[in-house]
Amino acid sequence: MIVRKKNIRIKKNKKAPKSEIRELERQWVEVHSHIDPNNAPYDKLEKAKELFRQPSVIKSLKELGLIDKD
């Protein structure tokens, strides 16, 4: 079977695509500088401690084999 290969015309994109890195930096600065009064920053460590005290969390860690079942 003969497959005819097409010639592909590449259009020159004059405008450079937005850099993924710049976009990430923009988002990073945005979420770290903007504080929504309805979504105020909380103490991460306290939140984490609260989370890891929950029986459902411990159960899921055991199910995943990350901690001993005893």
Partner: peptide, 17 residues
């Protein structure tokens, strides 16, 4: 086990991305 989260929901979403 290393745990991390953002100090707001918005930041946690960004860390997920």
């Amino acid at each position: 086990f290393i745990y991390f989260q953002g100090s707001t929901n918005e930041r946690t979403k960004l860390y997920g991305r």
